[in-house]
Design a protein around this nucleic acid. Sequence first.
DNA 1: ATTATACTTGCAACTGAGTTGAATCTGCAT
DNA 2: ATGCAGATTCAACTCAGTTGCAAGTATAAT
Lengths: 143, 143
Amino acid sequence: MSDLCDFPRLLARHGVKPTALRLAVLEVLGAASKALRAQEILETIRAQRRVNKVTVYRILDDFTRRGILRRLALEDRASHYELACEHHPPHPHFQCHSCGQVQCLEPAPLERMWAELKGPLGNRADRIDVRVEGVCHKCRELS
Amino acid sequence: MSDLCDFPRLLARHGVKPTALRLAVLEVLGAASKALRAQEILETIRAQRRVNKVTVYRILDDFTRRGILRRLALEDRASHYELACEHHPPHPHFQCHSCGQVQCLEPAPLERMWAELKGPLGNRADRIDVRVEGVCHKCRELS
DNA sequence: ATTATACTTGCAACTGAGTTGAATCTGCAT
DNA sequence: ATGCAGATTCAACTCAGTTGCAAGTATAAT
Ligand SMILES: [Mn+2]
Ligand SMILES: [Mn+2]
Ligand SMILES: [Zn+2]
Ligand SMILES: [Zn+2]
């Protein structure tokens, strides 16, 4: 999404050691313009070095629990991941159900929705996810 | 969700033959108060008769493509299904990330969100999904 | 009634994404 | 050097679906 974040610092703040692999995961996600599947992250790292998929899954899982990453459940069966640092606040996503492309949308509408829903739900809500589906421009032209 | 729907008619309107299995799937979902996993639908039908899981998956898939059902992608790895007939308009869902319980919320906020997002996205959006996550009352008390 | 045809259901085998538990490796402290 | 904790790896497994094809069933022609 951008490289505004100092990843070693980010990890330090969360009390996690900045290992080569953990930094690699963050750098891949930081360089991406969209949320990525574990598979894509794995392949990108593998262009540089040897990694076991289990390690990547465990890092993604750990980062998600710590709030360093957001895990998106899309129509796709595979989860997508994106940075959750202050430079990338929660936002709605668009997904094309023809090609599966994911696109990040502006955060504002989600914030309004959150303000509207968290009241009625009492204190039990702690996160909201908004996903818009349709056919992207590219796929529309092809048909 | 309710039994306001005449399922044989519903199927006729979509040009699908009302086989015993297709009706069974609809009846299970009509009797449920929440969206169900394929597995749960399968087991409920199996309490009455013999079915192969492939058939149920195919029916769910077909119904979803025809718009008879909605498929929900939740945090859970398994899709959840609910009736999409006029008595059950699209609505946000709440999911507890401790026990996984899904709860249907009021449709109004989703309609407002839809009105707000479809404009900026042009004509490419055709559906919106809103999922609120948190810890349900039951799970909160246990901790 | 018999056969042809299409549609529905079933079976077995497979896939893809993620998970598990135990083994090894690595950095660091004693 | 030795010990230890945390990080990484490996092989095997699970779970939710998917595939291709065979078998069954209803409907339509003959
Ligand atoms: Mn995003
Ligand atoms: Mn619902
Ligand atoms: Zn597309
Ligand atoms: Zn709960």
